[in-house]
Computed example of a mutant assay.
Amino acid sequence: MDQQAEVAAFGMWNFLATEVRLFGIMLFSYTAYRGVYPEGFAEAGRHTRIVIGTVNTVILLPGSFVVASTVHPAERDRGPAPRRSHRERDACSSTRKRNSAGWPCFLLRGSGNRHLKGCAMA
């Protein structure tokens, strides 16, 4: 068990280091190019559509929250499956089979958890 915990911790730190490198390079590149080509960035800024960006953000953030708040407890096996509204449940495709806890099987395939009992794809 100790070895598994060490490997899990190493994997998490490796993932975090990779993310820092990736986003560090991206932010550095953005800053460098913005300094070299300020006119191009100013021109692009004039073409930005704030309403479209705002609507996109308003749509994406709640969806990410719903996925994170429902999948995480199921992976940790903490109590019963969280109750979800009809709209959230239908967004996960009501045409597919669900396991005994009510989780859509296509969300659980390949995740290595114990919630796959009764999952047979339609």
Rank of each mutant, 00 (worst) to 15 (best):
V7S: 01
G45L: 01
R76C: 07
S69C: 06
L22R: 05
Y37I: 11
T48M: 06
R76A: 08
R83Y: 04
R34G: 12
S100V: 04
G79P: 00
G11R: 07
L108P: 04
E75T: 13
V55F: 03
I50R: 13
V66H: 07
I52W: 11
V20T: 02
S100N: 07
P80A: 07
I59M: 02
P80W: 00
V67K: 06
V71K: 09
M121T: 06
N56Y: 13
I50A: 12
R76K: 11
R109K: 15
I50K: 12
P104R: 07
M26A: 11
S111K: 15
R87D: 14
V36N: 03
E75V: 14
T95S: 02
R49G: 05
H115K: 09
S64G: 12
N56K: 11
G118E: 00
W13T: 15
G24S: 05
S29Y: 09
A44F: 05
G45E: 11
A74I: 02
G102I: 03
F41D: 09
F23W: 10
F15S: 06
M12H: 10
L61V: 09
T70H: 07
N56W: 14
A91L: 07
S100F: 04
L107H: 02
T95E: 02
I52P: 02
N14E: 09
I52K: 12
H47R: 10
H72A: 02
D2A: 12
Y37E: 14
T18G: 12
Y30M: 12
T54P: 01
P104G: 10
L108C: 08
D2W: 12
V67W: 06
A17P: 03
H72N: 04
D2N: 14
Y37Q: 14
A91Q: 03
L27W: 14
G40W: 04
F23L: 09
E39K: 11
V71M: 14
R96N: 13
K117N: 12
A5V: 15
Q3A: 12
R114H: 06
G110H: 08
G24T: 07
E39I: 01
H115E: 01
S69L: 06
E43S: 13
P82D: 05
A120K: 09
N99K: 06
P73D: 00
V55A: 08
E6T: 14
V67Y: 10
G112M: 06
F23S: 11
D77A: 01
V67F: 08
C92E: 08
M1L: 14
H86I: 08
C92K: 06
V51D: 10
R87T: 15
A8I: 15
L61A: 02
W13E: 15
S100C: 04
G45R: 00
S93P: 04
K97Y: 04
Q4Y: 15
L27N: 11
L60T: 14
A32L: 05
A17D: 11
I25T: 03
